[in-house]
Design a protein around this nucleic acid. Structure first.
Lengths: 325, 325
DNA sequence: TTGTATGCGTTATCAA
DNA sequence: TTGATAACGCATACAA
């Protein structure tokens, strides 16, 4: 592998002169510099990252830690992160799974954006305590080295429930998310509050886990108990898709017997029949904001936790309740 | 940041002893070793990757280079890669975009798996020439440091066309992929061969680009020219989804007037009405095979290029042609 | 303007 | 069994 030493030898100068020339330091003559640059190009010189990282104590790499690689969900989010990072001379690398956590303490990355429920709070706090910079998207964590960009879950859930109520629904199921999910808990809290403000409403909770199959399971219960048109709020779209699948096998119909709303506005919802009502937010902005916060944290500037706003996307899956039938 | 030097001082031994203990070298007493290990744990010691990488000339990191982060397509593929890599002590990092290419020549990763049409052949060959190990999934490239795991595109395209023909179709549109796409070209070649073997067939090519909107555009032409039931082979599923969208706005119906088959079996196809016929293959196996090849390449073993087999998934989108109507 | 020398944190060779 | 020391490739303070 060709190093600055080789270039120095070839150019008949010292390695420091080469280093200066390569880094555009004005101390070296334009003449010498261009000669060195020419030789570097000719020899296909590429600086060794390990050596540079060791010396400069930074890698210009940011890690995004995800629960898994599935879900079209991540496309916009990661794209948003990447654009902001690239614009600032950083590169994004996407990781998943516990083994990859090592990249942070080993200083292979300058900071991390976390959206991974498998990543424990204690572990994150430990890293923050050692000086690593973090932005979390799926929890609230208070530490000078941690910032967060959170969805406005409560606003979203409130919008969803109010939409159902406005459409005349008075019997509402909520299909919940994993018990340890911050987003799920926030959404549920807002649901309960909104329900209470609008009594009397018949309200039934069903445990779910944010995956499609748990939506199918919830649907079974709803179908079994079916007597009259009901409304269902799935705390994410994926479970709502599960409801579609299960209901399609019965005589009941979404938007007629079962009125359904989800959360996330994933791409898939555009293809369901009838279209799914859901809560939307800009995943691209979310990613961009996360990168922004992290960069500020690394630069040592003061950062204020940010919030990503949401809006209701009406859909054919929710219709006005026919009170007389 | 705590280094082996700090541990050495604390333990009253030399740094080399610490290094040996940390790396489980049996030259050091079990007693000293456990004392050192205890101190290391107490000080929260984590080895610095940059230093280790510099010395060992390897990072135990593999990069996957993708065109973008979109498409549920990648979930299984990356999962397959990761499983094999983790099992062998490597970590996977996922990258996208030109700036991230630097990771390879700068030796921040030990090898790369490429599925990115924006990555030029010349660039890849240049890296291979400098000794970097590569596995490509979207092209054929001959170099001792490059291996490939390719889809059996020709078999898939042949299956698709034969399926249409078996169902009585004699007028067939093909919506093509980007001109520089290896997969698209392979598929098209097989299409033409199969058509020729089954003359007479009316065969019309429409340029596409593997994205949904190009499918919509192709649909416009097909709809405009519509006189009698026709068959359409979209060289990937995403464009087929575009066809669904466009046709939904007309009086024509998929599976009746327009018989449609795609390629890739992406998750979305399970949700279309009627279900889309397509060509399936294991993305998980594809990723696993890619990792496998790369690891072998790094280990210096001989590798044989591999092929991922495909199969037909029948769907309601293709029905027997009603000859009399 | 260029060169010399040092150190970043490891690993590994050679002595002790 | 342990320690002193060189080396990995680069950046930079200081000397010339």
């Amino acid at each position: 592998m060709v190093s600055i030493k080789d270039i120095a030898k070839e150019a008949g100068v010292s390695i420091s002169t080469v280093s200066y020339a390569l880094n555009g330091n004005p101390k070296v003559t334009a003449e010498t510099s261009s000669r060195i640059l020419a030789i570097a190009k000719e020899l296909n010189y590429v600086p060794n990252a390990a050596a540079r990282n060791l010396k400069k104590r930074e890698t210009k790499l940011i890690g995004a830690f995800l629960t898994d690689y599935f879900g079209a969900f991540y496309g916009d989010l990661l794209q948003g992160m990447k654009e902001v990072l690239n614009k600032n001379g950083y590169d994004l690398i996407v990781c998943s799974g516990t083994p990859s956590h090592r990249l942070l303490p080993e200083k292979m990355i300058d900071g991390a954006i976390v959206l991974d429920s498998h990543f424990q709070n204690e572990e994150l706090l430990k890293y923050a305590e050692r000086g690593h910079k973090l932005v979390v998207l799926d929890r609230e964590l208070h530490h000078p080295n941690i910032s967060q960009v959170l969805l406005d879950n409560k606003a979203g859930a409130t919008l969803a429930i109010e939409y159902l109520i406005e459409n005349g629904h008075r019997k509402i199921y909520v299909v919940k998310g994993p018990k340890d999910s911050f987003d799920a808990n926030q959404r549920l809290q807002a649901v309960i509050q909104t329900i209470e403000r609008n009594e009397p409403i018949e309200f039934i909770e069903i445990q779910g886990s944010f995956i499609k199959s748990s939506g199918e399971k919830a649907a079974e219960q709803i179908i079994n108990e079916y007597k009259e048109p009901v409304a269902v709020f799935c705390l994410n779209d994926e479970m709502a898709i599960g409801i579609y699948n299960a209901v399609a096998k019965t005589d009941l119909r979404i938007g007629e017997h079962i009125h359904l709303i989800g959360f996330d506005n994933i791409e898939l919802t555009q293809y369901t029949q009838p279209t799914l009502a859901t809560i939307d937010y800009s995943k691209h902005k979310w990613g961009a904001a996360a990168s922004d916060q992290l960069l500020k944290l690394i630069a040592g500037s003061k950062v204020e936790p940010e919030r990503i706003y949401v809006k209701l996307v009406p859909g054919e899956s929710v219709q006005m309740r026919q009170t007389l039938r």
